[in-house]
Computed example of a mutant assay.
Amino acid sequence: MTTYRLHVNGRTHTVDTEPDTPLLYVLRDDLGLCGAKFGCGLGQCGACTVTLGGAAVMSCLVPVSAVGGRVVGTVEGLGRPDAPGVLQQAFIDEQAAQCGYCIAGMIMRASSLLAHTPAPSEAEIRRHMMPNLCRCGTHMRILRAVRRAAAMLAKGKP
């Protein structure tokens, strides 16, 4: 066991775990943050997507020992049920979730895109969102939600 200090959603946490433990397991099992889902465990679906140092990563593939001092962001850090963040509200408004399993990962991938490219083109949105899969087929609604969030942020919504 090794002790790690993780900076997640603006808070610092200390966890004792094995170095090769996937970040996904630490987030869910040790920190109780269950937004990131276990989908495939192979980095092929994106249900476990979080941000690490601002970049979208599949947390099932990132060992906790590789996190270092980088900031981890999860969907829980973007808003609350009674006060959703801009991206969360855009996904609600566009009814982008059907079963909802992929949505936290989709939102976090979109968050990474909008943090680096506030006014992405359609091609940039599609390219950036491509690694994440929605088995329900709501991809068009998801794309609309990302466009809506970008427009809301451009108008100065926090």
Score class of each variant (00 low, 15 high):
V71P: 01
C40L: 11
C99G: 10
D30I: 00
G69S: 13
R126P: 05
R80V: 11
V86W: 06
E124C: 08
G54N: 10
F91A: 06
T49M: 01
G43F: 05
A47K: 04
G137V: 08
K37A: 08
F38V: 15
C34W: 10
H116F: 00
A56K: 05
M129F: 09
L78H: 05
G43Y: 03
E124H: 08
D29M: 11
C60M: 12
H128W: 14
V86H: 05
A36I: 05
T117N: 10
S111E: 14
D30N: 12
P120S: 13
D82Q: 15
G73C: 12
G53R: 04
F38L: 15
G54F: 11
V72G: 03
C134M: 03
A110C: 06
P84W: 02
S65M: 11
S111A: 15
V72I: 12
V64H: 04
I92R: 03
R109N: 15
C40R: 12
A36T: 05
A90L: 07
F38I: 14
L52A: 00
Y101V: 10
Q88M: 07
V62N: 09
G43H: 03
G137H: 06
A123M: 06
D30P: 00
C34E: 13
F38C: 12
G100P: 03
A56W: 00
P118V: 11
L133N: 04
L133G: 06
F91I: 10
L52N: 07
C34Y: 11
C40F: 12
T117F: 08
R135N: 05
M129Q: 07
T49E: 00
L33M: 13
H139I: 13
R80G: 08
S59K: 08
A115D: 14
R126A: 14
P84N: 02
T74V: 04
S112K: 02
C60T: 11
D30E: 14
F38P: 04
T74A: 06
D30F: 10
T138D: 06
E124I: 03
G43R: 08
G100M: 03
C45K: 01
A47Y: 07
S111G: 13
V57D: 02
L87N: 01
A55H: 14
A119Y: 02
A110I: 01
A96I: 03
R126N: 11
C48W: 02
G35V: 09
V75L: 06
E94W: 09
Q89H: 04
A115K: 11
F91N: 03
A110Q: 02
P118T: 10
M129N: 05
D82C: 13
S111T: 15
A104L: 00
L33E: 07
D93V: 04
V57G: 04
S111H: 15
T138H: 10
D82L: 14
G35Y: 07
C45H: 02
D93S: 14
S112N: 10
L33D: 03
A56P: 02
Q44N: 13
G85M: 03
L52G: 08
Q89F: 01
V71A: 14
S59F: 09
L78W: 08
A119V: 15
P118I: 09
G79W: 01
N132K: 09
N132G: 07
Q44R: 14
I92K: 01
E94F: 11
G39Y: 06
L42F: 13
F91W: 10
P131F: 04
A90V: 00
M108D: 03
L31M: 00
C45P: 07
M129H: 08
